[in-house]
Amino acid sequence: MLLVDADPVGGSAILAGYFGGTVPHPGTLVELWSAHRQSALETAVREMPLRLSETASLIPGPAGATQAGGLTDLWPALAVQVRGLSQLGVDVLIDLGRLGHTHLAAPLVRGCDQVLLVLRSDLPSVAAASAADLPDEIPVRLVVVGPGRPYSSSSVASVVKHPVAFELPWAPEEAEVLSHGKPEPKRGRGLTRGLRQAAEQLHATALRELTHV
């Protein structure tokens, strides 16, 4: 799997959060942009990602909105490259950041097989999602974090007008292990189980869609 951090806000939850800034990396999307300008994007996408494990690599995102604003001409070319990786059997997961950001990498959205909108079940989250301008050409599904706080997933889906792909439990202490590198809590593995099940479901869905192409 290749993880692409395309969140224009910056501040990697993986490098700065989970790894606490202790892991050096060979480059970010800014370096990919530079490689693209030199007609070397394909090589950079293959060689630059930071190896996280035997099966997962990461391309870190820009430092912030200022850098993200200069990456406009990278997105269409990168969409072609990640599509090629997908056809070779590499699962590519892209974090596009929050809805409505000025520097959202829209060409990457249009190149996705699946678009997941992650939101809480509270009124501010549901209201923002229901007012969002989401792509019509790609089916969007919801990931509801903390269903029943206070609205059920079915209620959220009826308002946002998109089906629910899966739910994740409300588990802030577990979440901080991944986002801030905190020690694992003594109790509770619900989020870990939920994420594993979600990954298996996403992979199975991608295989089914690939088979139908």
Rank of each mutant, 00 (worst) to 15 (best):
V126M: 13
S86W: 02
G100D: 07
E200A: 08
L93K: 00
S125K: 06
P147I: 10
L207G: 00
V177G: 08
L134G: 07
L88A: 12
A105G: 11
G181A: 13
V160Y: 10
T192A: 15
S130I: 05
A128W: 05
I94C: 01
P150H: 00
L178N: 08
V90S: 06
A199Y: 10
A157F: 13
G97Y: 04
V90T: 10
E137L: 10
P185S: 02
L134K: 05
L116H: 08
A165K: 03
Q114V: 08
E173W: 07
V115C: 08
S154Q: 13
A198S: 03
Q87H: 05
D91W: 06
L168T: 04
R110Y: 14
Q201H: 10
S130T: 12
G148C: 06
K186L: 12
L202S: 03
D136Y: 02
T102P: 01
G181K: 07
L202V: 15
G84Q: 14
V164C: 05
V118H: 13
R189G: 15
E176F: 13
L207D: 05
G194Q: 04
L202F: 12
W170I: 01
H101C: 06
V164E: 12
S130K: 14
G146W: 11
E167S: 14
A198V: 10
R110N: 06
E209N: 09
R193W: 02
A132Y: 01
R120N: 13
D95L: 01
A157L: 11
A206F: 05
V92W: 02
G148T: 13
V144E: 01
Y151Q: 08
C112A: 15
V143Q: 04
Q87G: 04
H212A: 14
V160S: 13
R208I: 07
R120S: 11
V156E: 02
P147V: 10
E174K: 13
E173T: 06
D122Y: 05
